[in-house]
């Protein structure tokens, strides 16, 4: 290669690089600029909190049956499909004490707790491992403490499922619509598509219009929901007056779901 050709290629290469970076930076600049001529705001009736949290009074649920209407309310509100095998979807489900709180293992646990069912859902951790590992920010923590999902952006890598220590996440191995009634239980809420991960959202869409989460509403006061940062909130009062536990607290994730047992 002779000298002039080499220097030409050098200059050409550098200018191509400069051009591409400037194009890229202008692209990202336009991505940030708003398209809409209008503006955005929060709903007037929306419920606000610094840190949403849930307190489940498991003492007031006698059998697994007592949870049934709550699970149904959740799964109906969010069009959660009922898939019979182990590639299933769960937002709100039940398991035994031993499985829900494996660190509290005790061979001689009293019969009531040994036999009882405990409701499981996304813990909306203060320090969520799923958010830490997501490579596209498809799952993220909002300023009110809710760990939310953007199904549009999820690439289905399932890193979050490996990361979640609570097994709170489900992957759509199959097309969920095949396992839903037609019309779907809640026509005002979308379904999910095949190949994305989903989980409980603390009903962010209901809080935005001033409603309590579906499970809380269906529980008749047995599940409390409120602002953990507010000492006068129902959840703080319940926690102050009762003994509570959380799932796997030693992992440092700071779950936002408390169990009165």
């Amino acid at each position: 290669m002779n000298k002039s050709r080499r220097s030409f290629l050098k200059v050409a290469g550098i200018s191509a690089f400069a051009l591409s970076t400037s194009v890229a930076s202008s692209l990202s600049a336009t991505a940030q600029a708003k398209v809409a001529p209008g503006s955005y705001e929060k709903g007037a009736s929306a419920l606000h909190a610094k840190r949403w949290a849930m307190v489940i009074d498991t003492r007031r649920f006698l059998t697994a049956k007592d949870y049934k209407p709550i699970i149904e309310a959740c799964h109906r509100a969010h069009n959660v499909p009922n898939i019979p095998d182990d590639q299933n979807i769960k937002w709100f489900w039940l398991d035994s004490f031993e499985h829900a709180f494996p660190d509290e293992m005790n061979e001689f646990l009293d019969n009531r707790r040994k036999r009882a069912s405990y409701p499981l859902l996304c813990n909306h951790c203060t320090n969520p491992p799923c958010v830490r590992v997501c490579p596209t920010q498809a799952t993220y923590k909002m300023e009110d403490g809710i760990v939310a999902m953007d199904y549009h952006r999820c690439i289905g890598c399932r890193f979050c499922m490996a990361g979640c220590p609570y097994g709170a996440r489900s992957f759509n191995f199959k097309d969920p619509r095949k396992f839903l009634s037609n019309p779907v239980p809640n026509p005002a809420f979308p379904t999910r598509m095949i190949g994305v991960v989903e989980k409980c959202t603390f009903c962010a869409e209901r809080l935005a219009v001033g409603q309590m989460p579906a499970c809380v509403e269906a529980s008749g006061g047995k599940i409390l929901f409120g602002d953990l940062a507010d000492p006068n909130s129902t959840v703080r009062k319940a926690l102050a007056e009762n003994y509570s536990i959380r799932r796997k607290p030693n992992l440092g994730t700071q779950p936002g779901v408390y169990y009165l047992i």
């Binding site: 958010v131 830490r132 590992v133 997501c134 490579p135 596209t136 920010q137 498809a138 952006r153 999820c154 690439i155 289905g156 890598c157 399932r158 890193f159 992957f171 759509n172 095949i194 190949g195 994305v196 991960v197």
Partner: peptide, 21 residues
């Protein structure tokens, strides 16, 4: 392994330095 392989470039479109991926 991806559930939505056509969205794979999201990893570059939304670079996330806290993810090991």
């Amino acid at each position: 392994d991806l559930g939505q392989p056509q969205r794979m470039l999201n990893v570059m479109l939304h670079p996330t330095p806290n993810s090991v991926m």
